[in-house]
Design a binder for these strands. Structure first.
Lengths: 208, 208
DNA sequence: GTTTGTGAATGAGTTCACAGCA
DNA sequence: TGCTGTGAACTCATTCACAAAC
């Protein structure tokens, strides 16, 4: 499923943190940064930074560190953060509606180009700049507006069906907020966000 | 930091999925379930289920599988899902406000007992059943209402300071939505939810 | 002196495979 | 026969440690 299977997935996750660190360094007008500097801001070890970056090339110079704008550009390219990525949201309940209003998307280059629901009551409703569309228009919007990522915000009972719709519409990347496993064909990447799971994990580690 | 350091963290995360699977099985009135049944509903392998459960005891019977209500109770106890857990939210911007309205909390035994912000404009505002309080009342609420988990919904610049407030108030578990690493003293557990990170990871795996 | 890139060593977690119980 | 519990084998990821580059 990964584009480059020999790169560990944890590395990809950290890349996102490195990119953030480099943006801050660039904002502070730093020209160069050592792996130690980046590591500190990303919350990992310097060796980890070097090892992770080494999967993609030799970006640094011994004794000098990494060129901040250059490395920032490389990482942005890897994470597709150098271009706008279009996103559709399937499921406009409370959670989906909250996501539609989330400003962090635009700031980081993600643009919501469609919000969908199967409930006829909701179709046609306006939510900020978005008009809720019927799911049957999903494939059209994906193709015509070039959406590449689907956000699944449906209740667990509807999660698999919704997933199938996203996949049938041509999406190859799904961020699911449904607290249930979903199955997808090879070539489709899924990631889960599950607040209840996180709270339960925290609860486990609670003292007493 | 873990309560039981020899149990792998991925195991704890899966425990949450097993608990969900068992609740569904219980709702379906299943009396027994094999590791294969649980595994399927949790999206993992049967061996994984058995190994994970074996860290906590011998709950199954060879040839018969696991007793559904019994195992459900065991897992609920482990994840503290057998009692109400009180939660405070620090930061009532868009995201924090959305979290205050999230119904999944109550359903799973989490109760928001306080919403806090440092902005005097926001203090005193009502949001559903919640009245935003000033951060200076945080320690009081944590102690008096027995809050055990803090949700951090502040912008990255304020994240560390907010973390320090939560820790100083006596909280030992933090769920952070801030896209930046935070440092906490030993004995405090932190987990992160970062939607932008997840989207960037998905973007990496996008074809072409 | 500083800092990178990377093989080698270590550590962590998963899967295998099977003995033993129901 | 069906299924658990678990050491052993294996796979995956991180950390170490150092030669080479600046």
């Amino acid at each position: 499923m990964p584009a480059n299977p020999q790169v560990p997935e944890p590395t990809i996750i950290r890349l996102s943190a490195y990119l953030r660190a480099l943006r801050r360094l660039e904002a502070d007008e730093a020209e160069r940064a050592s792996s130690a500097t980046i590591a500190e801001r990303a919350g990992v070890s310097p060796e980890q930074v070097r090892k992770d970056l080494s999967y993609f090339g030799e970006f640094g110079r011994a004794g000098l560190g990494y060129g901040v704008p250059e490395l920032r550009r490389h990482l942005a390219r890897l994470l597709r953060a150098d271009r706008e990525l279009r996103v559709v949201v399937l499921g406009v309940g409370r959670l989906g509606a909250a996501l539609l209003g989330y400003r962090g998307f635009a700031e980081r280059g993600f643009r919501i180009v469609g919000a969908f629901d199967a409930d006829p009551e909701k179709v046609g409703m306006r939510l900020g700049p978005h008009v809720i569309m019927d799911v049957q228009h999903l494939p059209y919007v994906v193709v015509e507006l070039g959406a590449e990522i689907g956000i699944l915000a449906l209740p667990p009972e509807a999660a698999q069906q919704g997933t199938d719709l996203l996949v049938a519409a041509g999406l190859r990347a799904i961020l699911s907020f449904a607290p249930t496993p979903i199955t997808v064909p090879a070539g489709v990447t899924v990631r889960h966000m599950d607040m209840t799971r996180e709270l339960e994990v925290l609860a486990y580690y609670l003292p007493e």
